[in-house]
């Protein structure tokens, strides 16, 4: 890849080490929630890791809400858009989404393909990502304009791309996840693995585990298709509430009192603190570790690591 710097996208992403695309054929399976958790966990994986998160779900951006950044404006500098810092002055988790560009929260973005394509190119070429260890990209459901544009524009940095597929256990979702897998194969996108989300729900009254959306389908699919199964995540109402940016969960009162919703407060990154107290965080950190290991290994075999 000698021509890496030849396109604006290549130049802009020159100092991004790994790019992880989170996708699933189906909507509402938790892509954005997984992207958010992955970005948080990767940021937490080392004291200096810098992570970016790019939301290319243009007609239904959820990332700003999940990071508690609803309504934040994006600043334009002479050198491009400055991504929004989720962790304030630390600036180790930076985020870009079309949600930051909308004036009102109920404004709909009614765009056909070519305009979406232009927006995605702009996100990749005009945002000042700076040096990043990981760039997590959250995608909309399906395998259409956004996905094709993304892969096209990222061609100069293709060697640094990889994907995570998210599914839920029902047959209907697995069918679409299968399509997504076919997509990654068609465009030659290395797969880090499959995550099964919403696998089981623990009744808060009696502790009985209900398989609200069935269970085990993801693992079965991974085995059948010979792809890595990263694990399954149960429905975690605490996490849902946290990412929905509702009132702070009672567990974390001590941490967040007074700074509720203000994730930009300088010293503590409240969202991270609160996230670590959810039951899912520990399950997810194992998946993130696995991803970090895989990427480090691949990097080691391909080029000399820069650290």
């Amino acid at each position: 890849m000698t021509e890496v710097a030849d396109t604006p996208v290549g130049r802009r992403l020159q100092h991004v080490k790994h790019i992880i695309i989170v996708c699933s054929g189906k909507g509402g399976v938790g892509k954005s929630s997984v992207s958010t958790q992955l970005a948080l966990s990767l940021r937490g994986s080392s004291p200096n890791a810098r992570v970016g998160i790019l939301d290319i779900d243009l007609t239904g951006p959820s990332i700003p809400r999940m990071l508690g950044l609803d309504g934040h404006p994006v600043h334009q500098s002479s050198d491009g858009w400055v991504p929004v810092h989720a962790d304030g002055s630390e600036a180790r988790l930076v985020c870009m989404s079309v949600g930051f560009l909308l004036k009102k929260k109920e404004d709909s973005v009614v765009w056909r393909g070519p305009k979406k394509n232009a927006m995605i190119r702009q996100f990749l070429s005009d945002v000042r990502w700076g040096e990043l260890d990981y760039l997590v990209i959250d995608t909309p459901p399906g395998t259409s304009d956004e996905h094709l544009s993304l892969i096209e524009h990222m061609a100069p940095v293709h060697s640094r791309l990889s994907a995570v597929i998210v599914t839920t256990p029902q047959a209907v979702a697995l069918l679409d996840a299968m399509k997504c897998l076919s997509f990654t194969r068609a465009v030659n996108l290395p797969l880090l693995g499959l995550i099964e989300n919403m696998s089981g729900y623990v009744c808060p009254c009696c502790g009985e585990v209900s398989n609200v959306f069935s269970t085990g389908g993801g693992e079965e699919m991974a085995r059948r298709e010979g792809i890595k199964f990263l694990g399954s995540l149960p429905v975690d109402t605490e996490l849902v509430t946290l990412l929905d940016a509702a009132e702070p969960s009672p567990l974390s009162d001590g941490v967040t009192s007074g700074v509720n919703g203000d994730t930009n407060s300088a010293s503590t990154f409240a969202l991270w603190q609160r996230y670590q107290q959810t039951p899912t965080a520990s399950l997810f950190s194992k998946m993130a570790e696995e991803i970090v290991r895989t990427l480090a290994r691949d990097e080691g075999s391909a080029t000399t690591p820069s650290e």
Binding site: G25, R112, G113, P114, T143, S144, D145, H147, L148, L175, M178, K179, C180, L181, S182, F183, A186
Partner: peptide
């Protein structure tokens, strides 16, 4: 096959 991805841009859809 149900596995096939329909990788279509807008105009084809």
């Amino acid at each position: 096959s149900s596995k096939d991805a329909v990788m279509w841009r807008g105009p084809k859809k």
